[in-house]
Amino acid sequence: MDAINSRIELTEADRIDRLRLIRSDNVGPRTFLSLVNHFGTARAALDRLPELARRGGAARSGRICPADEARAELAASRKLGVSWLAPGEDGYPARLATIDDAPPLLAVRGDAASLMRPMIGIVGSRNASGAGLKFAGQLARELGEAGFVIISGLARGVDQAAHRTSIASGTVAVLAGGHDCIYPPEHEDLLAAILDQSGAAISEMPLGHEPRARDFPRRNRLISGACLGVVVIEAAQRSGSLITARMAADRVARCLPCRARRSTRAQPAPMI
């Protein structure tokens, strides 16, 4: 079945098992998917982790997240209005679910329906010029009027300009840290406005996680993975914004063979 069209609903036990597995040592999104595909369920994969560690030559297995810890994280998240959703559940962006390293669980806060609408990413310099900020805001406004949700990283500069001018039409903030660790801190009011106006915020990080430098490229893959295309405004040559655009371009390139098989007529690649 096409991943974009498939729909599931996890039980509470399934959700706890998934959270335990992704929070265990040496398990990232790709490893998670490989384990679940091989063993069938997250619970079965958890049971086999010690054996897999021994086979790999480890003197002892890595830490496996306890069930009580996973339950506590889910409970604390719910108090903040955060839901942890799996690919295929309503509220999990369908396009994001198709990338190779899609989060096995995505922390969603706000209006999940906005995540099911077509999205365009707008990213760029944190130190953008006045003209760049004006253009970002104008483009976000016009795309919103055309029916698109704007997705960006809640950063200073271009990101905040795009978010602020698309609050009324729909915007999604992708967080590098946990939902209770907003970065930069001065954008807490912006995030509150987004959530008050039927927008949403998403993260794959646990509560209490302060964003580090290496977390921002991980955040950027969520932006590029969830949207139809990415617009980059005033980005430096080695910037995270261009990394986001390259991720989006790579995803389009990988999808082209799939599209060709599903259609008797070749389709042009989206311009990004």
Score class of each variant (00 low, 15 high):
2 D>N: 15
5 N>W: 07
9 E>S: 13
10 L>P: 02
12 E>T: 10
15 R>V: 10
19 L>K: 06
20 R>P: 06
23 R>Y: 12
24 S>F: 09
28 G>L: 01
29 P>G: 15
31 T>W: 04
32 F>I: 08
33 L>E: 14
35 L>Y: 09
37 N>V: 06
38 H>G: 07
42 A>Q: 04
49 L>K: 00
55 R>D: 08
55 R>E: 13
58 A>T: 05
61 S>A: 15
63 R>I: 08
63 R>D: 10
65 C>L: 10
68 D>I: 11
68 D>K: 12
75 A>Y: 08
79 K>W: 03
82 V>A: 03
85 L>W: 01
85 L>E: 03
87 P>A: 09
90 D>G: 01
92 Y>K: 13
94 A>V: 12
97 A>K: 08
101 D>I: 10
105 L>E: 01
105 L>Y: 00
106 L>F: 10
107 A>Q: 06
110 G>A: 05
111 D>I: 14
113 A>E: 13
118 P>L: 11
124 G>Q: 06
129 S>R: 13
132 G>N: 03
133 L>T: 02
135 F>W: 02
140 A>R: 10
148 F>C: 13
148 F>V: 11
148 F>N: 07
151 I>D: 00
153 G>C: 12
157 G>N: 05
161 A>S: 15
161 A>H: 04
163 H>Y: 11
163 H>A: 02
164 R>N: 04
167 I>W: 07
167 I>E: 05
168 A>R: 14
169 S>I: 02
169 S>N: 11
174 V>W: 06
184 P>M: 06
191 L>Y: 02
192 A>R: 15
193 A>W: 05
194 I>T: 11
194 I>H: 02
196 D>P: 07
197 Q>H: 15
199 G>N: 10
200 A>T: 10
200 A>D: 12
205 M>A: 15
207 L>C: 13
209 H>S: 15
209 H>I: 06
210 E>S: 15
211 P>K: 02
212 R>W: 00
213 A>H: 12
215 D>W: 08
216 F>S: 06
222 L>I: 15
223 I>V: 15
223 I>K: 11
226 A>L: 03
226 A>H: 01
228 L>G: 00
231 V>E: 05
232 V>W: 02
235 A>L: 14
238 R>L: 11
240 G>W: 01
242 L>G: 04
243 I>C: 01
245 A>R: 01
247 M>V: 10
249 A>F: 09
249 A>N: 00
250 D>Q: 05
256 L>C: 09
257 P>I: 09
259 R>S: 07
260 A>I: 08
261 R>T: 08
262 R>V: 11
263 S>N: 10
268 P>F: 04
